[in-house]
Design a protein around this nucleic acid. Structure first.
Length: 929
RNA sequence: GCCCGAAUGGCGGAAUUGGUAGACGCGCUACAUUCAGGGUGUAGUAACCGCACGGUUGUGCAAGUUCGAGUCUUGUUUCGGGCACCA
């Protein structure tokens, strides 16, 4: 009988579900392996073929690892809080929880059809109170800790309070929002409120006024990685800058460790590079420039102020001929002279109110205004003018710079525009033409560093400023703190209440703080977030609760930990489960999370590491980025003004316009003309100009989208070809990490392979036909070459070449008409990671249901001898099967009786009667430690 | 502008350590089975010259190292990705 994939796949999926074969428990007799996919946000559109690509790869690897004797944790869940469900709720009034549940149901259905080996008993959603309780709990811990820069780790805030009471800020260096100092006496005299306000300056989760990306259309703030070119990633609305009181995570405190940690993980270089750039470490100096006392009536006042700058080029300080402040700089109003005030105020007002889009729009346009004030270059002792300009950013360094026009192109352009002096301080350039921006060379016109190499000069200048007491060498990071408040409904409520406007944490035993019901999912009339609409949104004592909710990345930052112990009601996860599962060994997902989720998660994990909750500092040991699957659109060509369509090869002879056509009515670029006529009433009476009797469509690679009619739904492909074929074809498309267009054309090849594999076990009349004879050396050779190749490919995640190897193997066996059990049986195990359904069925037909697998040494090839062997139970298609090494000098019956006497074998086989013993090459299931 | 990565037939892509380039699949061509279609099987398929034996060229482009380069070095072009007034 021909292979009936519909029946077989349904049968085994049901079997796996009913018998819970993929349920995973801690098992100290086996080494652990944790394979994780980036869990999906369940959108209304369901899965398209791009989504499962990574899931299939990780599933293959998980199954492969199980065969190798590892205890594999392979869970799945949903990132369920988020904007789309809320936007939908605003439009329709339907509660986001309902939309989310429906979408999840659809996702689950689609995933089940692909035959994944997830342990679904561990599933949870980030919107489950049982889960977000621990998101809230972690937030409280962040609030209760500060970052000690000397110890390079988080410490309890209570320790800081003790130090403050004993010796003030004199000797301690906590990471802070603003540098402040006070003595123990001053601290002890402060009121409780004042103390709490000061502590916010140090907490890892703190509340502060900050410039945020405000999206008026969405009515919420967004994190930097949620904004691209001044446009919101979700929805594509303009984003502006606004000063607001927000919860913020002090991610920047971990900048150095986030950077160093990259050296210890196995990620692609490009991904590490992205994170490195995002963290943006630069070494330089912090230097104070005193303001000149000579200018105007502010002279007395000015002597109190200095302009603090950060520079990576202290060696060029002799060329600093002016200074620039960002428009947000607090010094501006204090130093601007009356004559300049009007102009400055206007400039600052305009700059502050410009949206990010507008600002980004004219990066090249030079603008700025003189404040009337002068600073003093501490080394040349000359007065240099102070400007305000947009090209200096508030969020980086100190928001002020010393401008060295000779060696910085932006300063150069600014100096030329305002006619400011340009002093060359590094030899080699032509500063009449352009700025000479090199990082090496000889210093000139530079007082005591003249003649030195640039690097040496920088060192000497740093020593000198330190000596005078106006600065020091320092390291600056571009990584900014993460704004953690969202003015939305569908997110985790903060476990925070306010007393006299000071925030306090709820007691841990009152968690979870449940998301309240509201009448509408919109902000209130007074502009407060939706939670302000909730009845009695206050504590038992009547204190006001926080109305913002947490952002999408809150729930996804620590979800991988919860899978270890998902039903624990007392803890996030138990120490024991964390000790066993440690961290994620293999994480599979898209690069788009490089500067978002993957930074936040690492931060989250490092914090939990500091407080002793997790045993590994890095959460994801190896990471694979599956490439995006692009769409492959098909086109028909209509002759202008007619309803006649020209085939691709002839279109150049006519004046045609291309029209997207649904890829579901095109096969191998050949249009199904009848289906086309039915596709849209517009085309009902279409006529065609054909080539060789066929209508050939054109094609192009584009983003997969509904409007381009190029979305390929996995369900349709499974219906037509089966899950095993889909799984193998997605792998066959190309290297997992490469972006590639989806092209259904090749799927026939894999489908053919599956049928061919099936036919190996059957005769010409499709009757079961397996031969028990001893295989020939040539046949063994085919098998063992394949085992070797697949093992190799699996280990280096080269799934596309592995599929090729299977095809070659089956072609060769089929050429030799080889239907020998001893060849096909091991192949079935080998292929089961890729095509689990057909292999499970064949295994069953082979009569191997309750079987013991023996591994032997193939006699003909000593290369397959492996020195260290272990007797492990192996898991194959979810069922644990006993694996025992088979010495060459014993007969099968001898081994059979030996194994049946073993206590362990009875345990492993769970009381089942062992019917038979199967011999396979040991390499397939050997554990290599 | 800066930082990564890639470039191989009509197409997707192989080539694991510098050692027969083009595996495997799609598509295409021919033949067999068949009323036909589908399916299956067999043979061919980088380009050029040649009936054929065979020969020449060939991994974006230009040089170099080497007995030998798709692979290493330098320069260059194009495409993709990241960052983007980051001082």
């Amino acid at each position: 009988m021909e292979y009936n994939f519909r029946e077989v796949e349904k049968k085994w999926q049901q079997y796996w579900r009913e018998k819970n074969v993929y349920k995973t428990e801690i098992d100290y007799s086996k080494p652990k392996y944790y394979v994780l996919d980036m869990f999906p946000y369940p959108s209304g559109a369901g899965l398209h073929v791009g989504h499962p690509l990574g899931y299939i790869a990780s599933d293959i690897y998980a199954r492969y690892k199980r065969q190798k004797g590892f205890n594999v944790l392979h869970p799945m869940g949903y990132d369920a809080f988020g904007l789309p469900a809320e936007q939908y709720a605003i439009q329709t009034g339907q509660h986001p929880a309902i939309t989310t549940s429906q979408n999840i149901e659809r996702y689950r259905e689609q995933m089940d059809k692909i035959g994944f080996s997830y342990d679904w008993s561990r599933e949870f959603r980030t919107c489950d109170p049982d889960y977000y309780k621990w998101t809230q709990w972690t937030f409280i811990q962040l609030f209760n800790h500060y970052y000690c820069q000397d110890a390079q780790r988080a410490r309890p805030i209570s320790e800081l309070e003790e130090v403050f009471a004993m010796e003030g800020t004199a000797r301690i260096r906590p990471a802070a929002t603003v540098e402040i100092s006070f003595t123990a006496d001053e601290w002890n005299r402060k009121t409780e409120e004042e103390k709490q306000t000061i502590l916010l300056n140090y907490r890892l989760a703190y509340l502060a006024d900050t410039w945020v990306n405000w999206c008026p259309k969405l009515g919420t703030v967004l994190a930097n990685d949620e904004v691209v070119n001044g446009i919101s990633v979700r929805g594509g609305y303009p984003v502006e800058r606004k000063l607001m009181k927000q919860w913020i995570l002090r991610v920047s405190a971990y900048a150095e460790r986030l950077l160093q940690g990259l050296n210890t993980v196995d990620w692609s270089d490009s991904l590490k590079e992205i994170q490195k750039n995002w963290i943006g470490k630069s070494e330089g100096a912090f230097i104070q420039f005193a303001l000149s006392k000579n200018n105007s009536q502010f002279s007395i006042l000015n002597s109190q102020f200095s302009i603090d700058i950060f520079t990576t080029r202290p060696d060029t300080i002799f060329g600093a001929t002016f200074m620039v402040l960002c428009p947000e700089h607090e010094l501006i109003e204090k130093i601007t002279t009356p004559e300049q005030k009007k102009e400055v105020d206007e400039y600052v007002f305009k700059a502050k109110n410009r949206t990010e889009v507008e600002r980004a729009g004219d990066v090249k346009k030079i603008s700025g205004v003189f404040t009337g004030a002068y600073a003093i270059n501490p080394f040349t002792n000359t007065e240099i003018p102070v400007y305000v300009a947009e090209y200096v950013l508030a969020g980086y360094g100190t928001g002020a710079i010393m401008a060295v026009p000779a060696h910085d192109s932006r300063d150069y352009a600014f100096a030329k525009y305002f006619n400011l002096p340009v002093i060359e301080v590094i030899k080699g350039g032509d500063i009449d033409e352009e700025a000479y921006e090199v990082k090496e060379g000889i210093c000139i016109n530079s007082g005591f560093i003249t003649g030195m190499e640039v690097k040496e000069g920088a060192k000497v200048v740093i020593e000198k400023v330190k000596e005078i007491g106006i600065g020091y060498g320092t390291i600056n990071y571009r990584l900014r703190d993460a704004i953690f408040s969202r003015q939305r409904y569908w997110g985790e409520p903060f476990p925070v209440y306010f007393k006299n406007d000071i925030p306090y944490m709820l007691p841990e035993d009152e968690l979870p703080l449940l998301l309240p019901e509201v009448d509408k999912f919109l902000p209130t009339e007074t502009g407060e977030p939706p939670l302000a609409r909730a009845q009695n949104w206050q504590t038992k004592e009547g204190n006001k609760l926080e109305c913002s909710t947490m952002p999408g990345f809150a729930g996804s930052s620590g979800y991988y930990l919860r899978y270890m112990d998902p039903h624990n009601e007392k803890e996030y996860f138990s120490k024991e489960t964390n000790q066993y599962w440690q961290n994620v060994d293999l994480y599979v997902g898209g690069t788009e999370h490089a500067t978002g989720h993957l930074i936040y998660s690492r931060f989250w994990n490092k914090f939990l590491y500091d407080i002793g909750l997790v045993c590994k500092e890095e959460p994801f040991q190896k990471l694979i980025n599956q490439g995006m699957i692009q769409g492959r659109s098909n086109f028909v060509y209509r002759i202008q003004g007619t309803n006649t369509f020209v085939s691709f090869g002839l279109k150049d002879n006519y004046d045609v316009s291309p029209i997207h056509v649904d890829i579901n009515i095109v096969q191998n670029d050949i249009l199904n003309m009848d289906a086309f006529k039915q596709w849209s009433p517009d085309f009902a009476d279409a006529e065609f100009i054909l080539e060789n009797g066929k209508y050939i469509c054109g094609w192009e690679v584009e983003k997969m989208s509904k409007s381009k009619y190029n979305v390929q739904n996995p369900d349709d492909l499974i219906e037509k070809y089966g899950a095993d074929t889909l799984r193998m074809y997605e792998m066959f498309l190309g290297p997992i990490e490469l972006a590639k267009p989806w092209d259904t054309n090749g799927i026939e090849g894999v489908s053919r392979f599956i049928r061919k594999f099936w036919r190996l076990f059957h005769d010409a009349n499709n009757e079961w036909n397996i031969c028990e004879a001893e295989p020939s050396p040539d046949e063994y050779k085919i098998l063992h070459r394949t085992i070797q190749k697949i093992e190799n490919d699996n280990e280096r995640f080269s799934f596309n070449t592995a599929v090729s190897a299977f095809m070659i193997c089956v072609n060769e066996l089929s050429d030799n008409k080889c239907n020998k059990r001893k060849i096909l049986e091991p192949l079935t195990i080998l292929l089961s990671a890729y095509a689990p359904h057909i292999c499970e069925e064949l295994w069953y037909l082979l009569g191997n249901e309750d079987s013991v697998i023996f591994a032997n040494y193939p006699e003909f090839n000593p290369n397959y001898l492996v020195e260290n062997t272990f007797n492990y139970p192996v898991s194959f298609n979810g069922k644990t099967r006993f694996f025992k090494e088979f010495p060459i000098d014993k007969s099968i019956s001898e081994m059979e009786s030996e194994i049946l006497q073993l206590e362990e074998s009875k345990k492993w086989i769970e009381g089942k009667v062992v019917k038979k013993v199967i011999i396979v090459p040991k390499k397939i299931i050997n554990v290599v430690l």
